[in-house]
Structures are given as C-alpha cells and as structure tokens.
C-alpha cells in the first residue's frame, strides 16, 4: 500500500526547473532510497514533501491527506518526521529535554499553554523518552548538553527524537554525509534495526552507494530534476542508464 504518493510534481526557482514530472510512491513498511548526482534535486524534493517549499505543480498525498499548502509543523503532526543533513537538535537543552519536546509535541499538538504544570510530573513522557534513549544507546548521556555532543551522537539523538514521535514516515536527508566509515556503518546498523523492530516507513536521500544498497528495498534515481528509473536495488545495479548517469562516473558498486 502507498503511504506517500507524489504525482506530476514540479518545482521552479525563477528560470530554473529544479524538479519536473516527479511520480513516485513510497510503500508502507519499506525503505525507499532516492539517489542522484549533486544538484539533481533530491533536497528540493524532500523540502516539497515536508512543507518547506511549495511545489509549482503536482500533488503530494500522504496517508489519505494532501500535503500541499500545509505548514511544516502540521505535516509533522500528520506523521512525517525528518532528519537534517547536518544534525539539528536543541543545543542549549540537555539530551533528555531534547527527547521530551517531541514527546510533548506528539501528545499536546502544535501549541498548548501548559504553563503551570511541572515537567517533572510528566512521568509517562519521561519513561517513553528514556526508553528510546536506552534503545539508541544514549541513556548515559541524558544529562549532557546536546551542543557538546559529537556529531555522530547528535545524529543519533536526532533520530531518537524522531522515533519518540512514532512517525509513520521517517525522512532522512543524507544522514551519513561527512561521517567517517565507522560512524556510517553504525548508522546503517541503527537504521536496519529500526526498520526491523518498528512499524515504520523510511525514505532516505543518500549519496553513499554502500548505505543505499545495504538498506533500501526500493531505489529511485533522480537526474536533472526528474526520475530516471525506479526499481529494486538488484535491478538498479545492472541498469545501463543508471551506470551512465551516475554510478559509473564516480563510484564502483
């Protein structure tokens, strides 16, 4: 079943047609990777899904709702959590507080004036937050200020924050960009485990072929703002068009 369905999507920046005729379906409980050379329009596509950019044409349907014209926080409330290319966390807050915020957002919605409750009384949310931290191996760092963590840990925390919301769709924009091999492998293992253990759909934008082929159930190759092919990893590997457009020129698979 399709969880996310993009139809005839286009995006113009002034004279530049960044995306055109994008048709793409992300199936429930799969990992869908979107790959393509630099400037292909991957981030633009993601931004059109999460409400950062308004598409110039086409439609985006998620779980029965149209996402067009919705603000970013509304789209998150519908069940889409995203991870940024450079980890975005609440640097001034400690790790546990970083986790409590998505838990509160999930329970209370986009705004609630709970000014006279004490955060210490939120036992249930705390448990939930600590469960996820435990699972992500961050529980020992719960009192650490997020800004003082390593980049790898920040990435881990950011994923943990998304998971605390039990999203239907987790979107990742080049989660391993700029990471050392060891960190990259850790992230792959982590994402594999998340995929196995949770009822979750993952869409991942990635540059690193190693990551893509170890994770994805389905791959869409984007070139010059339009999908070249969309198929299983095995078929993508041998695809002549893909080799020509992307794989052959930079990386060996």
């Amino acid at each position: 079943m399709e969880l996310l369905e993009i139809k005839d999507l286009g995006k113009r920046f002034g004279g530049l047609q960044a995306l055109s005729e994008i048709n793409l379906s992300v199936m429930k409980n799969t990992v869908h990777a979107i790959i393509g050379p630099n400037g292909a329009g991957k981030s633009t596509l993601l931004n059109c899904i999460v409400g950062k950019l308004m598409p110039s044409s086409g439609s985006v349907m998620f779980d029965g709702y149209s996402l067009l014209g919705r603000s970013a926080h509304e789209i998150n409330q519908l069940g889409i959590s995203r991870v940024f290319q450079t980890p975005e966390v609440f640097g001034d807050l400690n790790v546990l507080e970083n986790m409590l915020i998505p838990c509160l957002a999930k329970r209370d919605g986009a705004f609630r004036l709970h000014a006279l409750k004490s955060i210490d009384d939120e036992k249930q949310l705390r448990e939930k937050a600590e469960d996820v931290l435990e699972d992500m191996g961050l529980i020992d760092k719960r009192h650490m200020k997020a800004a003082s963590m390593s980049r790898g840990d920040k990435r881990r925390l950011e994923i943990a924050m998304c998971l605390a919301q039990d999203p239907k769709l987790l979107l990742l924009d080049e989660p391993t960009a700029g990471m050392a091999r060891a960190d990259t492998n850790n992230t792959i293992d982590l994402l594999k485990r998340i995929k196995q253990e949770r009822d979750i759909t993952i869409a991942i934008i990635e540059h690193d072929m190693h990551v893509v082929f170890s994770l994805a159930d389905h791959i869409t190759v984007l070139a010059q703002g339009t999908p070249l092919v969309s198929d299983t990893p095995d078929n993508i590997k041998g695809h002549p068009k893909v080799k020509e457009a992307y794989l052959g020129e930079t990386q060996q698979v």
């Binding site: 970013a72 998150n76 001034d92 807050l93 915020i101 409750k117």
Partner: peptide
C-alpha cells in the same frame, strides 16, 4: 519559577535554541 519548570517553559527554551528543529517536530 513555575513557568520556567513547566512544559511551556521548555518550549520557550526550544524557541531560543532551534526554531527549525521545533517546526519539524510538529510545534508552532
């Protein structure tokens, strides 16, 4: 003090810390 220690107070600190993250966490 009560406001500082409330969920609301924590959201205000989130505003100062990272509004982008806040928005993509479903908060306005």
């Amino acid at each position: 003090i009560r406001i500082f220690r409330s969920p609301f107070g924590m959201m205000l600190r989130a505003v100062k810390s990272n509004q982008q993250r806040m928005t993509y966490t479903g908060l306005d």
